[in-house]
Design a protein around this nucleic acid. Structure first.
Length: 224
DNA sequence: AACCAGGACGTGA
DNA sequence: TCACGTCATGGT
């Protein structure tokens, strides 16, 4: 791939979309997981909250583990900000245990539940989210994008691996620099951003495993 | 049986 | 600012 013909984010997005199709993030228990092509979710305040706590629970953790935690919470009717805020911390830890880091994450969920209630249904700003203990940049952006349909670009470890491999930036580049670059070079459409992040995750799972670090993927090989 | 997953925080330098 | 260590379960 020549430097003079560096692919644009928009081209890479189209490439990934045509390869993998719509991903249907964020998965919700009500709709039995993913909902490709349907951008109408979340439809309720409860679904918004489910996405928020899912974003926290999935920090450095496989989604399959998070699902178990969410199912446990649903069983005790605890995918609810008020319920989580006042429920016994030990009970909360037990429910989310499959998601790992359950001591920290139980505290994070309680902190977020308090914040969520104080929002009174309003959309949080990125700055507000970042003040919440346990919500970092990636989690904040995931919440804005998938719970509130705001067109932000979510930077995760996969993004760094793939796009540093493609020559866009260094692996340890600043989070906000990466985010700004993509947001300035993509349409301000939440659907595009929702799909793009999900597609990056899918592509990384396919081509950036331990054995192959993107060597045989169509993005690094294609020249146009 | 190490290694890592849809990170964030606390600490010391 | 930044480079580490810590947190923890479950799948490969």
């Amino acid at each position: 791939m020549g430097e003079l013909q560096m692919k644009t984010p928009a081209k890479i997005y189209k490439c990934l979309f045509s390869e993998y199709g719509a991903q249907g993030w964020w998965p919700l228990l009500d709709v039995k997981g993913y909902h490709p092509g349907d951008y109408s979710f979340p439809k309720t305040k409860k679904q918004i909250f489910e996405i928020c706590i899912g974003a926290i629970l999935t920090q450095n953790t496989a989604w399959t583990n998070v699902e178990k935690a969410l199912v446990n919470l649903k069983k005790i009717n605890a995918i609810d900000s008020g319920k989580i805020l006042k429920m016994d911390i030990a009970k909360l830890k037990k429910a989310i245990k499959p998601a790992g880091y359950y001591n920290q994450k139980a505290k994070k969920l309680k902190e977020f539940a308090k914040f969520f209630i104080e929002l009174k249904g309003k959309t949080p700003t990125r700055e507000q989210l970042l003040k919440v203990w346990g919500v970092g940049k990636e989690t904040a952006d995931s919440i804005l994008l998938y719970a509130y349909k705001i067109p932000v670009f979510v930077v995760d470890a996969y993004t760094r691996r793939i796009f540093s491999k493609l020559g866009f930036f260094k692996k340890d580049a600043d989070y906000d620099e990466i985010r700004n670059f993509f947001e300035e070079n993509l349409p301000k459409d939440f659907k595009v951003h929702q799909e793009f992040h999900a597609l990056i995750v899918e592509h990384a799972k396919q081509h950036y495993t331990k054995k192959s670090n993107g060597e045989n993927c169509f993005l690094t090989n294609v020249h146009s």
